[in-house]
Design a protein around this nucleic acid. Structure first.
Lengths: 333, 333
DNA sequence: TTGTACGCGTTATCAG
DNA sequence: CTGATAACGCGTACAA
């Protein structure tokens, strides 16, 4: 590995000059520039990023902290983050926390020691206090942490209303909700949206809301019990696609036809939702766009560029597929 | 951010002494050690990883280069890699190449400039030559590059034989294969395994092999055409799960019952295969274990520990689910 | 057992 | 326009 000194020697100039042509700042004679370029080429010299980092206190890398890349929501997000980071000259180091506070803090510390320039994090355990202590830009994705931390989320409540409203619209008369974890606010917002839409219906019962914890297995069990207790249910809004898939499976187990006897709608728009039979109707988040948006936001913060808006709430979109269908012959009120 | 110098001053010792207690090497009086520890605590001092890297020419980070983290095979792998890297004190920076040579080379270069200690790569464009020039350990996952590069793969041919053999066993009489890309050797190995199992059957036709390119959409189309040309087909072995799911969808479109009229088996064992209806029978790779294994291997190479075996070929496992079933009433020979 | 001083590879400042 | 040289923060001979 050639160093800047080698190049300087080869070109017969000082390291300062080499540095100047490297970073194209300061004046440098065109002739000497040529000599330097030639030397660089000959030695196949590549500047050492670590030395540069040490001096500039910046590493051209960002941290991406997620609960679990195995969760189908995150690969697409990670892809978007990496893509746009790469475009802007940044690398991304990625970390899985399993929603574990100690792990999260440990990662943050390690990243800080490596001079990462900023971090993108999906977390609900992070406090504003800790973020402040970090002294580098932090942006939150998918979850609100506090007002001070720039955030990219989607309109969860609105999406939930869309979902529940859509089920009503196609003729469902008893609509249940499989909710996500109580400590995750997007899960709570989706419950709120659901309630706003159906909470005051005469048929509404609190027990139409059941816990699915955002995981398929739990959702299957929950659906089984739900449908046993309340066989009258003809529509289910699951707070994420994975649970919706679970609901489809549960219905299948009970011999309930989807969508004829039971309409099911999910939330997220992960690609898995297209793998099922029937394919899943869902409220799709613009996952890739969210990743692009957070990364853009973070990089602007890092590079101290002006940023219009530190709180982005993206729109969701209803994607109709096979797990729901107009139920005409069920007479409205 | 406190530096080692601050700590030294605070403790009333030299930086060398601080460094010694930090790395617990060299002799240091128990009393002074205490003073130093106290100073470290007071200042909440954390050693600067970049400075350390610069001196030691090592960064405690590894690169993970994959075609596309969105491809459902890779998240689980990435998770395993990150988990075990983290356990061993390494961070991982991840890169998506889209099988694009320039991107790959660019990443390799950048990683090198950042002193990554080694890289894990899934690629078929990388040459042994380039790896040698890198001068850091490189291990290959999922694909063989050359004999010199340590590799972790699965027994693709054997797995393919298992798949095709299993279809025969349950009574399929005409077994087709949806193959992966011609330039990916694991795809070719799976074709080989298929051929070894059914290539000499009297009914075998070359046109029973069709291209699915490892993607769902292509596989759907391919299956549609295949089944049109050869309605006699009663078993399909798809070279990966995503294509198998495509095949299921195609069958569904054509009104062919799976598994009653058409048995379908995939390859990979991704979690998506459990989301489908019917759930997919598949040849499961031990994805997580593969990730653990490559990372272990790489770290050993980095740390110059003895390594028994630089070519690991892991076993695959047949997982019977609903997309196949014994077809009793179809009289064998 | 402890301290001094240099090197790791760059960048930036300040003379010239 | 160009060249010395002092940082950046840490680890380690070498001396004491």
């Amino acid at each position: 590995m050639a160093t800047i000194r080698d190049v300087a020697k080869q070109a017969g100039v000082s390291v300062a000059t080499v540095s100047r042509v490297l970073n194209s700042n300061g004046y440098v004679n065109n002739e000497t520039k040529k000599k330097v370029d030639e030397a660089i080429r000959q030695l196949n010299y590549k500047p050492n990023a670590v030395a540069r980092s040490l001096y500039k206190k910046t590493s051209k890398t960002i941290g991406l902290i997620v609960p679990d890349i195995g969760n189908p929501f995150f690969p697409e997000l990670a892809r978007a983050v990496e893509d746009t980071a790469h475009k802007k000259g940044y690398n991304v180091v990625f970390c899985n926390t399993d929603e574990n506070v100690e792990k999260e803090e440990h990662y943050l510390e390690v990243l800080l020691q490596k001079y990462v320039d900023g971090v993108i994090i999906a977390s609900n355990t992070l406090t504003a206090q800790k973020v402040k202590e970090l002294n580098i830009p932090v942006v939150s994705i998918d979850r609100k942490i506090t007002a001070e931390i720039p955030t990219v989320v989607v309109k969860n409540k609105q999406g939930a209303r869309k979902a529940a409203g859509y089920l009503k619209e196609i003729g469902c008369q008893r609509i249940a909700h499989i909710r996500g974890p109580h400590h995750i606010d997007n899960a709570n917002e989706r419950v709120d949206g659901y309630l706003e839409e159906v909470g005051s219906e005469p048929w509404f019962k609190q027990s139409y809301i059941t816990d699915g914890n955002y995981v398929m297995k739990t959702a299957i069990q929950a659906t089984l019990e739900l449908l046993e207790r309340h066989p009258e249910i003809d529509g289910i809004f699951a707070a994420n696609d994975v649970m919706a898939i679970g609901a489809v499976k549960a219905a299948y187990q009970l011999g309930k036809k989807v969508p004829e006897e039971l309409a099911i709608i999910g939330f997220d728009g992960i690609s898995m939702a297209e793998a099922t039979t029937p394919e899943l109707t869902t409220i799709a988040q613009p996952i890739y766009d969210m990743g692009t948006a957070v990364t853009d936001l973070l990089v602007k913060l890092i590079e101290k560029k002006p940023v219009e808006n530190t709180f982005l709430e993206l729109d969701v979109e209803l994607i109709e597929r096979e797990s729901t269908r107009k139920q005409k012959n069920k007479g409205g009120r």
